[in-house]
Design a protein around this nucleic acid. Structure first.
Lengths: 264, 264
DNA sequence: AACAAGATCCCACTATATGGGATCGATTGG
DNA sequence: CCAATCGATCCCATATAGTGGGATCTTGTT
């Protein structure tokens, strides 16, 4: 379950990064994403792609025929069952998801907060699963999406075992794309604390009002292969609750890890 | 196992349904499905598509670049995070799934059998969700897949409210594609019983050894919008257990329906 | 070190996708 | 009730975008 993001190395042909030779395929995928983004009818799709009705219609029709999209006369286009199937398979491909699910369900029922499960994919934290939680607040995150490692509790839990050189690397990645809240020294200092306790926090460092507690999941070899986080707004997450959650999170993380063969 | 497109004996009219004009897109989708089917490297993909290395590579590269596939030097291709995201969204698009999940999780924990959630899509039962269960037996079904209505417990639960004319229609669909176990009269008779009790069974009618109990889920208007089934092999499902499960299934079906606004 | 297998790149040819426009069906409103 | 509108679907001449053979590079194997 690894994937490194290739860095565009050809400055000659322009910055687009779009390797030509598959226009039709890319347009088809763009349609999928446009529909996921809420486009319901042909004009909307044409606008999103910048193609004519004809072309858009032909591609959309092919996607419907292959069940990647659904089409209903009065409602327009929707995401199709084939995506359900492929998405489900992609999720099952990572054994972590299947093993962690029941544990996280139980935790979710118990604490009522939003729970995320994720892995390290290249320099990013990739969300594999999400359990919404009972509160009416909506945490804006999506399964399949990438988040910066340095700023999220989940990301920090994923790199708990790495050395300081690598920690700096992740901090620098964040620096490159916009200002940080904490300076390097503070951030490293916190990471050291998190590493020592085997739990990572996020105290509104990234998003105001949003706090979370995250724990690392280890495989049989003891390596961190995934992490999960319990997220809520500050009103449900005072210092006392975070401390209490730390214990729970550590216990659940241990249970999942043991299911993966971890002996620690 | 395969999503087959039936090949007509007479290729005169080109009945394949493949609307030309999107070869590249269709090939790209075929790659996705080949990878889902286990193809790991370029030669395997080329063979599955019947295209040259070049073409296959270009399409696969585009899919990797768009995160629909992953590629790792030693492991080859895999389904990518984008599919996770789209699949998750497709699932959330049906509110039933979200509402039913917690109830089904609880039921799953309680009974340990495989549970399916599905809706009626045209003349088919479409699987929306699947909870594996604790037994080591594997029920071969996939989320996003379609099953015949007439032969599965889930399918029969979906059409419980329809009239006999429509029942006959579904029975005829099955007849067209291979022999039935029960004759029409028997089948209709059973359907009447199921309808009267508000629960559908499948007593190895479809697959030997496989039995299930299925219940209908109703929306605020009382219409059946989905159904779920508890499936197991006959060794875990004697008559007594089926009777016991009927009560549980009816209760859970009612609870989910009430969450959807049903007042019954 | 030479070999083998797979991935990646390149380029001339043509099969393939493109978009303008015509058609058709359903909704809206006058 | 008919006219106008909007969206979906179909058709076809054109050139553009995709194809595949082969060269090249990378990585693991004997």
């Amino acid at each position: 379950m690894w994937d490194d993001t290739p860095v565009p190395s050809k400055p000659s042909t322009g910055e687009t990064g779009a390797a030509p030779g598959s226009q039709t395929l890319l347009r088809g995928l763009a349609i999928l994403e446009a529909v996921a983004g809420g486009a319901r009818d042909l004009p909307a799709l044409s606008a999103a792609l910048g193609t004519t009705r004809s072309t858009t219609h032909r591609l959309a029709a092919a996607l419907v025929e292959r069940r990647y999209l659904t089409f209903a006369p009065r409602e327009g286009y929707g995401l199709g069952p084939k995506l359900l199937e492929l998405g489900f398979r992609a999720q099952q491909a990572a054994p972590v998801t299947r093993v962690a699910r029941p544990h996280l369900e139980r935790l979710s029922a118990e604490c009522g907060d939003t729970i995320h499960l994720g892995v390290l994919e290249g320099d990013w934290a990739l969300y594999l699963d999400k359990l919404p939680g009972r509160r009416r607040i909506e945490i804006s995150s999506r399964v399949g999406e990438r988040q910066p490692v340095w700023s999220t509790g989940l990301g920090k839990a994923l790199i708990l075992d790495l050395d300081e050189t690598r920690w700096r690397h992740f901090y620098r990645l964040g620096e490159a794309r916009g200002g940080h809240s904490p300076d390097l020294a503070t951030w490293l200092d916190r990471m050291r604390t998190y590493a020592a306790r085997g739990i990572a926090y996020d105290r509104e460092e990234n998003e105001p009002e949003v706090r979370c507690v995250a724990g690392p999941i280890r495989d049989a070899g003891g390596a961190i292969v995934a992490a999960f986080s319990v997220t809520s707004t500050v009103q449900y997450m005072d210092e006392a609750r975070m401390e209490a959650l730390a214990g729970t999170v550590r216990a659940v993380a241990g249970a999942i890890s043991r299911d993966l063969g971890w002996a620690g």
